[in-house]
Amino acid sequence: MSEKEKNSPILDKRSSRRTFIKNSGLTVGGVVLGGALGSLLVNKDKTATPEAPAHTETGAAANPNVALMFFTPDEYRMTQTAVERIYPADDNGPGAKDLNAAIYIDHQLAGQYGLNSKDYRLGNFYAPEPTQGAQTKILNKDLFLLGLKELNNYSKQNFEANFVELEAADQDTALAAFSEGKAQFAGTSSSEFFNLLRKLTIEGVYADPLYGGNKDMQGWAMRKYPGSRMSYVKEIQSETFVKLDPQGLNSHMGH
């Protein structure tokens, strides 16, 4: 995040958020109800939150893998918004949201990664020295959901609106606070959540599309990465850059 954004007049934004919330009548209500209604309302008010809408329209049915096995629709939307801030759309091409990084994260957290099934989980969890690596008892799937919740709490406290409704600059301010370990968090540092979010976002952009992200291998295409091919004997000897169209692991099936 740039200094410019950091120093942006927060008070102004707060007041505009306040107006928006008043108008939308979303200050009370259960989480589910608020979330569901929120997205509907947000869809109507595109100027207030340019980030949130649109995804539901983009050919959802075409790929059966694009469906949720872990997140609630609200959590999914929030994840989409957050990953887009980590890796936004730009002149190079789509951002993490359109690359389906949130679908990737949904699928990862539903499986063994969400349950930390290959991590050492025995014994006491003591507070570590900075050189001793994370020592959190919280499972990845729970850390992520806790993080989303805290991100929303932070947004409400500081900007008086849900995270998905904030302007990009405020979303960045919130995420920066998490990344620096400065946001309130139960049981561990907010930076642990941020690190998980960042790591999963990058994976969701660049892992083989078989995992649900890196839509149409566009993550690879942006950086001219050819994906997985069997041999580069020829290309590796070339003095000039050889651009190859990306191929997924599915191209190795049937070998």
């Binding site: 930390n116 991590d119 050492y120 989980r121 003591y126 020295e129 050189t131 690596g133």
Partner: peptide
């Protein structure tokens, strides 16, 4: 190696408490 079964613990100096490497780094 599957760390859920087995890992090492580490400390930088003799007077620290060693803690398990819970995931790979």
């Amino acid at each position: 190696q599957d760390l859920s079964k087995e890992t090492i613990t580490h400390r930088n100096t003799l007077n620290m408490r060693a803690l398990p490497m819970r995931n790979y780094g």
